[in-house]
């Protein structure tokens, strides 16, 4: 009997997939499956898995955007070639002194088996966290999260220089600026560019490899939104165990 069934199945002709409703296709896509054939008058489907890479482990706080615009950056880290044009642009645009930095590149040597490694450059900058440890730690509210944009800023005149925010930052993103007599850090170029209507940040503009994608995470038309909300894309943040809920995301290609 089963043999008969198998023969019957084999005898069926592929009737083509073009008549399947797009809703139905999408329903399968969500399961990670692609319809490749239809048999027996649309009663039987042949499907293959379409999941290419790891299923995105999207941080749990994504999809809740308290800020408008909710500034964010996605770093396509494997495209970075450490040309450091972003660092130079940042230094020039924001008058960063030689002893400090607001953004920099780290070099990863990712193990690829048997004593081998693969190079990958990893740009880092302030993550403009949703729960910034630095903001909680500051005694005088000199560093604060902008209620409109979510950018973590510093009010220079209130800074007492206790350096608690430096100790609190899990990402090493703060330094003391002797000229300002205050802590200095990345403000997504708010002061130098965004507040003057210039877009995007100096580093994103300077990047020749399209590593740094800057935009409004709350806007479905922005590239950052589309990258972060692609369920088939691996998206991660740095040191998620810190609970700071960064707004700078990492992905590859």
């Amino acid at each position: 009997m089963f043999k008969g069934f198998a023969d019957w199945v084999k005898s069926l002709k592929n009737e083509g997939v073009e008549h399947i409703a797009s809703e139905e296709r999408r329903a399968f896509l969500k399961l990670g499956l692609v319809i490749t054939g239809v048999y027996a008058g649309g009663k039987l489907l042949s499907v293959v898995s379409r999941v290419r890479e790891v299923y995105a482990d999207i941080p749990e706080y994504v999809d809740k955007y308290p800020y408008k615009p909710h500034y964010s950056m996605v770093l396509r880290t494997d495209r970075c070639i450490d040309c450091q044009l972003c660092m130079e642009a940042c230094r020039k645009t924001n008058h960063v002194p030689p002893y400090g930095w607001r953004t920099r590149i780290l070099e990863q040597h990712l193990p690829s088996g048997e004593g081998q490694w693969t190079r990958r450059f990893m740009p880092i900058l302030c993550n403009h966290c949703n729960e910034p440890p630095c903001v909680r730690a500051c005694p005088t509210r000199a560093t604060y999260k902008d209620p409109e944009t979510g950018i973590v800023k510093v009010n220079v005149k209130k800074c007492i220089g206790c350096k608690t925010c430096m100790a609190a930052c899990p990402y090493d993103m703060r330094y003391f600026n002797e000229e300002k007599r205050a802590i200095d850090k990345c403000d997504f170029c708010w002061e130098s560019r965004l507040s003057k209507g210039k877009f995007p940040t100096a580093c994103a503009k300077a990047c020749p490899a399209g590593v740094r994608i800057f935009g409004d995470l709350a806007d479905p038309n922005s590239r950052v939104y589309q990258l972060v909300h692609d369920p088939y894309r691996a998206i991660w943040v740095l040191r998620p165990s810190m609970g700071a809920r960064p707004n700078v995301f990492y992905t590859i290609n």
Partner: peptide, 25 residues
């Protein structure tokens, strides 16, 4: 402290009640 003279002013004018260092001081 880098700017101890700012401490008495902003500790009282702009307190951060979530900050342990504010409470400590």
């Amino acid at each position: 402290l880098e700017n101890p003279w700012r401490l008495p002013i902003w500790n009282s004018l702009s307190p951060n009640l979530r900050s342990n260092i504010w409470w400590m001081g």
